[in-house]
């Protein structure tokens, strides 16, 4: 196919899901983010700990809105956040004075590692990026960032996904664990 022709696309967008499906996606996301946000703002406020990071919003899209996707399976969710967090913190510690270089390095390396470990989870890229650009509070966590919020927060959202996504007859989660 010619270079320019490729830019026209080859097929159409997948169909719209039913209203019922939309409602279940809404409910799952609401409860999942409620759990980590409540912990963050009501329980952990005043501490140095963080439980909600921006990338969880993206994870919610996948694990409550596209639950059949390989990107949304437990292996990807947990592996994606944990590996990316390790990469993000490491890169920041390596280049604390050059965020313009640490940021792309963290995201690109996180994607490579997720690919290699078969844990590709798009929000992982954000988790790695946040480790670099997240500000003083995130930076002060050091490698704790890997466990809390990245690991534990993802685990809580996974628990909600398992509970909510298996209620409706038409939904089943996960497709696979590992």
């Amino acid at each position: 196919m010619k270079y320019w022709q490729k830019m026209r696309g080859t097929t159409k967008s997948p169909p719209r899901v039913s209203l019922v499906e939309i409602a279940w996606s809404w409910l799952g996301a609401f409860l999942g983010i409620l759990a980590v946000a409540y912990l963050n703002y009501q329980i952990l406020s005043g501490t140095t700990l963080v439980m909600v990071i921006g990338s969880f919003g993206a994870s919610a899209v996948l694990i409550y809105g596209a639950i059949k996707s390989p990107l949304a399976q437990p292996r990807n969710l947990m592996g994606g956040h944990v590996f990316s967090a390790i990469i993000g913190v490491s890169v920041y510690k390596l280049l604390p004075a050059a965020p313009w270089m640490a940021a792309p390095l963290a995201v690109a390396t996180a994607i490579a590692v997720m690919h290699a470990t078969r844990t590709l989870h798009p929000p992982g890229g954000a988790t790695a990026l946040i480790a670099v650009i997240g500000g003083a509070k995130i930076h002060s966590l050091g490698y704790w960032y890997v466990l809390v919020p990245a690991g534990l927060g993802a685990l809580i959202m996974l628990a909600v996904a398992l509970l909510v996504n298996n209620i409706p007859r038409t939904r089943s989660y996960p497709e696979y664990w590992f």
Binding site: V17, E21, T170, R171
Partner: peptide, 12 residues
């Protein structure tokens, strides 16, 4: 039911 994370073209 549910969102399938694949385009019709790729599925084909």
């Amino acid at each position: 039911p549910g969102y399938l994370d694949i385009t019709p073209g790729d599925f084909k």
